[in-house]
Nucleic acid binder design. Sequence first.
DNA 1: CCCTAATCCCGTACCGCGTACGAGAATAGT
DNA 2: ACTATTCTCGTACGCGGTACGGGATTAGGG
Lengths: 240, 240
Amino acid sequence: MVRGDGSDAGGVDPQQLWLNSDRPRKGRKPAFSRGAITAAAVALADAEGIDAVTMRRVASEVGAGVMSLYSYAPDKETLLQLMVDHVSGELSPPDPLTGDWRADLKAIAHAQRALMLRHPWLPTALFNRRWSLGPNTLAFLEHALAALRPTALDGGAKLEVFSLITGFAARLVADEIAQAALSASPERAAAEARYLAAVAADGHHPELAEALSAPARPLTPDATFARLLDRMVDGLDAGS
Amino acid sequence: MVRGDGSDAGGVDPQQLWLNSDRPRKGRKPAFSRGAITAAAVALADAEGIDAVTMRRVASEVGAGVMSLYSYAPDKETLLQLMVDHVSGELSPPDPLTGDWRADLKAIAHAQRALMLRHPWLPTALFNRRWSLGPNTLAFLEHALAALRPTALDGGAKLEVFSLITGFAARLVADEIAQAALSASPERAAAEARYLAAVAADGHHPELAEALSAPARPLTPDATFARLLDRMVDGLDAGS
DNA sequence: CCCTAATCCCGTACCGCGTACGAGAATAGT
DNA sequence: ACTATTCTCGTACGCGGTACGGGATTAGGG
């Protein structure tokens, strides 16, 4: 299992995973396909959450026996990587570049946010897993690097910026989704509010009390995202 | 189970979790304590990774029966929240504020990074889980809000900035740890390098090819963190 | 001083998970 | 037709979280 804390040494050879599409010339014909299985897993995750994506469930969704899935992906972790690359295909074709790298970078972040809102399991999946870099992910990365061409950043710095923007989008969308989930369950929201009120009233957290006492701003998540993104991108200067 | 994608409606009432310390007056005396159990879980996660933290394993580490743990935390998710708050205690007392909010914010981020490096499971735990806001987390949040007092940001914006900085640190540290893990397993690193070389050579990813062909910079993770943090914080201006 | 209610301890058991194994079915080349 | 190869999938194993419930321990009330 992949832990996200780097304490795993396992993993599948990327070449084996992404670059081996030639069918063997002998043997039984496959009854399913990697794409169909991946698509079913994605649909399941979209509809019922990432925890609904179990090998048994995906198999039954696709009409296969459980163990048949292992002919298409060596393990579940690989299936998750395939899912990430699959939905990344929705980022193509990207908006054409304008030459204004700040604007282009912001467009990239907005596209990522839209994708993550369509697939709410994506932020977590991206954060936990080491980059898979399948064809679709790779195409989008190529696009992002092209957007950064007008900057004076070197190669490594461009990659860092891309990672930063992706991480930013994932963080914000995760918050956005959590907030929506909280609002959707009134008793939980009320419990949270009661707790925060109690903390604010205990006298030991004056700053928090003040921050919470401010009138709630009528800001949409879109506006918050755009505002923070602007600040962040404008801070990324082109100097070394 | 908590999925991090907000599709869970469950969760424990925060008041029940954090504000109920008065022991009941009747009944058997507890043989263990929430703190001891949490500390054992943290030690286990530090030593063997977060996947080693199972209820059975924690129980045996603490000398308890498995089901006894459920007298101290209603479920595993709660135990993980307790772990997060437990290690957040290491952030106290924070460096005193200087009044220069940018410098103070950077100091906060550096403290968070150091904490996450000591507890490599923390970035993932923070990302997946909705904020728990136990006493230690709360104390540090209070400190961060105080650091932002010189700014003109309103309460909500201050909270956003804190979330952003925390997310930034988590992202960078996660990358840092993954990179270290990769370096530690040469055959995996070689496979990755071979794959990237193949991609760079396919002619369809010129930007990536160029980015990878640049000479590797001899930058320490510390320097990268500091540089990106500077850029980010300097971009966060005080205007609304 | 015992009785009762409250609390905690924890062995057993259930269900669901990922996946190893291996037998049977389908296919292509000889 | 024979054989090597590839795919399908039923069965089974070990491990995970945790519901259940009976026994042990405690404090207060008679």
